[in-house]
C-alpha cells in the first residue's frame, strides 16, 4: 500500500506538472481579469503543492510501520485480493473493457450477450442453464426497453439486431 500511495502521489505531481506546462500555452490574462489559462495554471500549481504533502504522508506511513498500525483501515495492499478472488476479478475487468470497446463493432446485442455469458459463467459461477438464459434474455430486454420503447439508437450489428 505504501508503494501504491507513493505512486499515486507521484501521479498527482506528474499531472500537476503536465497541467502547468499545457496551461502556460493558454493566455493567462484576458482583456479584463483572468484568461483561459488562469484557472488551469493555478490548478496545476495546487496539484504540485498537494502532491508534496501526499508524498510526505505516504513516506511517513512507510516509516511508522508499527505493528499496531498493521490492522488499520488501509494497511492492506493495493492489489490485496480475497483468496480466490483474483481470477474472477481479472475476467470481470477484461470483459468490462471488452464490452465498452466492442459495443459499436459487434453491435450491442452480441457484445452484451457475450459479456453476460462470460461474467455469469466465470465470475458469478452460475451453471450453464441460467447463464445462457440470462445471456439471451438481457439483450432482448434491453432491446425492447431502450430501442423499441425509449427509442435510443443503440448500436446494431449488420444483421440489424
Amino acid at each position: 500500500m505504501r508503494v501504491a500511495e507513493t505512486i499515486g502521489a507521484l501521479c498527482v505531481t506528474l499531472l500537476g506538472i503536465t497541467t502547468i506546462a499545457l496551461a502556460r500555452q493558454l493566455p493567462y490574462e484576458a482583456e479584463y481579469g483572468p484568461g483561459p489559462g488562469f484557472l488551469p495554471l493555478w490548478l496545476g500549481v495546487t496539484l504540485v503543492v498537494l502532491s508534496v504533502f501526499l508524498v510526505r504522508n505516504a513516506l511517513q506511513e512507510r516509516a511508522s510501520v508499527a505493528p499496531a498500525d498493521a490492522e488499520a483501515d488501509h494497511s492492506q495492499g493495493f492489489w490485496q485480493f480475497a483468496p480466490g478472488a483474483f481470477a474472477p476479478w481479472l475476467i470481470f475487468f477484461v470483459s468490462t473493457l471488452a464490452v465498452s470497446l466492442l459495443l459499436e463493432r459487434l453491435g450491442f446485442a452480441l457484445s452484451i450477450g457475450l459479456f453476460m455469458l462470460v461474467t455469469m459463467r466465470w465470475v458469478a459461477r452460475q451453471s450453464w442453464l441460467p447463464t445462457i438464459i440470462l445471456a439471451l434474455a438481457t439483450p432482448i430486454l434491453l432491446y425492447l426497453a431502450f430501442v423499441r420503447i425509449l427509442m435510443v439508437p443503440l448500436p446494431l450489428a449488420p444483421p440489424g439486431f
Binding site: 470481470f92 459495443l103 452484451i112 453476460m116 461474467t119 465470475v123 459461477r125 438481457t138 435510443v152
Partner: peptide
C-alpha cells in the same frame, strides 16, 4: 457478482 455485471451493463447502456 451478478449485481456488478448488471452495474456494468447499465453503466454502458
Amino acid at each position: 457478482a451478478i449485481q456488478v455485471a448488471f452495474v456494468v451493463l447499465f453503466a454502458v447502456v
